[in-house]
């Protein structure tokens, strides 16, 4: 691992036993199955995939809330797991949640929501706590005098600002944004995205942007990783991913961005549903939905391998497909 990486995920696998009773063996759910990712300080990585592809499990293992079955997660030089000092992890990695209506305790004022973590982390001087709460509120675009209001007295966008303030109050280095705008009105989304970008510049943050929506990731990421059924199928700089996507799944996701003018990829859709991760198809896990699948895809799984500098694809036909304009 390079010393400069803030987050290094190496061959991470998280498997959960599912079902199973007194007489039956539990099945293994391979939520994350061999993922490697790196984020450098100040960098944003967009992680894209449909629901159920393992994005959330990946986030939980970075936060040290789930133990890896295989591989490891190294955050700022420390390997994290459920036995790691939670307070230390909390000061390095924080999270912005999807639903601003469910992610704020309705019985706590904003001040309590922001001050309690500070106190928990050893800042007991009440003057300093009040100053940091006021400063944080200002940074996320709220007025310090709104600190004594309850969550229900704010709009959705304001609530998400509070959620962001809570994630940043401990001055973390890495912030996992789990669909930070998908629950918001379209008119508010740009504001929140811009706020996240401003805060990144101001505080030198790294982001892991989790989204099913490539349109959001496009605005926020230096690098993009596309995840499908627990594996990374394509990763690279955002320019490579958006301008020269190689994996049929990435192409389908980009084709799904509603944009009438610029997308040249046409109607390359992924048909059907995501297969159950309990029983993934043999070969390439995308083959049942892939318009370009050949026999080889159904026989053996492709490996994530470089197709150009910093651009990795896991597809047997990546070379040929780069020229196909479907």
């Amino acid at each position: 691992m390079a010393d400069t990486d803030l987050l290094a995920i190496e061959d991470l696998a998280v498997h959960f036993p599912v079902g199973g009773g007194m007489f039956s063996q539990p099945q293994m759910l391979r939520a994350v199955d061999g993922v490697s990712l790196r984020i450098r300080p100040g960098e944003s990585l967009g992680l894209v995939g449909e629901s159920g592809c393992g994005k959330s499990t990946l986030a939980l293992s970075i936060l040290g809330l789930v133990d890896p079955t295989r591989g490891r997660v190294v955050v700022d030089g420390t390997a994290v797991g459920t036995d790691t000092d939670r307070l230390a992890v909390a000061r390095t990695v924080q999270m912005v949640f999807q639903d601003p209506y469910a992610s704020l305790n309705p019985r706590q004022t904003v001040r309590r929501t922001l001050a309690a973590p500070l106190r928990l982390h050893g800042i007991t001087n009440s003057g300093e706590v009040a100053d940091r709460v006021a400063e944080m509120l200002r940074q996320v675009g709220l007025r310090p005098d709104q600190a004594d209001l309850y969550p229900h007295e704010f709009s959705g966008g304001q609530r998400q600002r509070i959620g962001i303030a809570r994630a940043l109050i401990l001055k973390p280095k890495l912030v996992i944004c789990d669909e930070p705008v998908s629950a918001l009105d379209v008119s508010i989304r740009a504001q929140i995205i811009n706020l996240l970008l401003e805060l990144q510049a101001e505080m030198g943050l790294s982001y892991l942007m989790i989204s099913h929506d490539l349109g959001v990731v496009e605005h926020m990421s230096d690098k993009v990783a596309v995840m499908y059924l627990g594996r990374i199928v394509e990763t690279g700089g955002w320019r490579e991913i958006f301008e020269r996507p190689r994996h049929p799944y990435t192409r389908a996701l980009i084709a799904a961005i509603p944009d009438p003018l610029t997308r040249a990829l046409g109607r390359e859709k992924a048909h059907g549903e995501v297969p159950s991760p309990l029983n993934p198809p043999p070969g390439c896990t995308f083959n049942p939905r892939c318009p370009h699948a050949i026999d080889k895809c159904r026989a053996s799984p492709p490996v994530l391998s470089p197709i150009e500098e910093g651009h990795l694809v896991s597809c047997w036909r990546a070379e040929e497909l780069s020229t196909v304009r479907a």
Binding site: A90, Q98, D99, A102, S103, P117, R166
Partner: peptide
Amino acid sequence: TQGYVQAARVLGYG
């Protein structure tokens, strides 16, 4: 399962 309980866990609450 509410977000604020997860958030508390992420913030290091026991």
